[in-house]
Design a protein around this nucleic acid. Sequence first.
DNA 1: CTGAAAGCGCTTACAG
DNA 2: CTGAAAGCGCTTACAG
Lengths: 338, 338
Amino acid sequence: MTTSQQKHKRVTIADVAREAGLSPTTVSHSLNGIGQVDPETRQHVKDVAARLRYRPSVRAQRLRTGRSHAIALLSSMPAAVSAGASQLGFFTELAMGSARTALLRGYVLLLAPPVDECNPLALLDMDGAILLEPAPHDPIAQELEERSIPYVTIGGRPGPENIDLQHERAAELLLMHLLEAGARAPGLVLGSSGRESQQAFRECYVNLAHRKKFAPVLAEAPEGGGEQAGYEATRRLLERHPELDALCVPIDTFASGAARAAADSGRTVGRDLLLTTRYDGLRAQTCQPPLTAVDLHLNAVSHAAVSTLLELLSTGEVQLSGDLPAPTLIKRASTMRI
Amino acid sequence: MTTSQQKHKRVTIADVAREAGLSPTTVSHSLNGIGQVDPETRQHVKDVAARLRYRPSVRAQRLRTGRSHAIALLSSMPAAVSAGASQLGFFTELAMGSARTALLRGYVLLLAPPVDECNPLALLDMDGAILLEPAPHDPIAQELEERSIPYVTIGGRPGPENIDLQHERAAELLLMHLLEAGARAPGLVLGSSGRESQQAFRECYVNLAHRKKFAPVLAEAPEGGGEQAGYEATRRLLERHPELDALCVPIDTFASGAARAAADSGRTVGRDLLLTTRYDGLRAQTCQPPLTAVDLHLNAVSHAAVSTLLELLSTGEVQLSGDLPAPTLIKRASTMRI
DNA sequence: CTGAAAGCGCTTACAG
DNA sequence: CTGAAAGCGCTTACAG
């Protein structure tokens, strides 16, 4: 080493203090713009800090202050659902929105996507979390509570600490649309997790069947089975119920499978069989034909989730939050009857 | 409070030690499975820790060990490019892949998407970073170096610490395809950042023009301008060069704009004007008509990036890594001439 | 306006 | 096999 560059030892606040001929206290106050410090002293400290290229250690700050200014996005959905071929889905879209909002408010987003047999919670240093569509007795929710980590849910049990995905409206929108598009015998394919969203679709569907006098026909598939599970459930359903002329398949991964099943059973989606799904992502948009779906306004949702969580973190509670935009229908060829 | 639940004070290693009648050292050793500890003692410690619901503080561990077991995904792309209406793009897809691989290897992924006028680096507690398509003199790259944070790039300057996106191959694939599809006068629309990818496309294009005897016609637009910038650049190019019968627009955000510009100038994409882009994302797939693009195998890319970074972190250097799959062409209606 | 000291909660030489 | 002690790098009452 002929340069003055030594073995690279971190510059600490003590170094700055020594170099400036002051105490760590004063350096800390100066740099953080707090306390009573002579303006000239403050400037001097800043100059010295800059000259030494001092960067405060986030680790030390976190340990000392007890806050990490980080939040995590968690989902207990099986990887099979949220992953898919393209990794582009619900979770992902929320992740980007949340990361942006968080960053703008000085928080970092930790991304902990569903990875089977991997518990990330022990690795995360966070102040709070956003949990996506928790199932009943959700293990991640339970662990968050055990660790006393504040969290908000998206599309979970109604309450102040939940961002309402308005499942009922989405369900109503999609099912009514099928009837309006001419369906006489619409069926329903759900995930068997018992998540709020699935329950809402079921209820809405059963009610509608009663009101509109059609026989309810529904199937369930394990969400962990991914597209193939959706395929198989749909295949069986169509065999057993050849009268079906429409399907609502809220989980988009299942809907991909349903489209395949429809084709394999000799039906043409959009003509013999109308098909709708919920999330308007890559799957819905690139299906052949493209699927009628719902705009959930995920940007607003992720924004609301971050805002609510940060409020929870700073005040310890959540005031009732502003209303989110209602889901809106996006009509596509899958329900056009040509 | 009638319950035994007190004001919630964190259970520390000292509490476990006291309760077990041992020292923090022994507790630490027992729980971490290191050192020489009597098997019975070890088990006893574990029992006590479980009973007290002890969770080690990640913050303290990080400060003490000097490692955070976290890596960040960074991009210096302007938000206008990577955001888009749907937030689903390149960055996002890499994020999910990286998060998964990282998690499987015990690392957390910090998501720091491009947010204009927001420097996340001061907030991040990480061991290393992945930087996506750095520009020449990239400010984020510079800051990482200043902070001595190890990082690998994706699609940056060739070298062991770069994951090669094989820009040249992608360019060749797309441009040759245009010629094979019958183009006589293909044009090129680039971003003006000077990133490796843009340079590679330019070079490949100019060479090809020379070899195949067509006149090179190209335009540049600022990436920060997003889709609109792509629109305007294309619009002008088509006005000035009515002879153009094909366009290669590597940046998909620009390609969306280009498709619009083509329509507005009275051309039909896929017939009068062939159009290709690079990244095969939502934009390419849902364009009307869908755009011929390239499968960059981003899953493999993100996996390689994480692996390479972790190797860099543990050994301090990178052995030459295994080859990544070559990009493959995905033909779509935009280059089909019906 | 400035500073000495404690402490956040761990891990890790080192001694016994 | 077990433990006392130092120290990671800050911030924050508190004293002066």
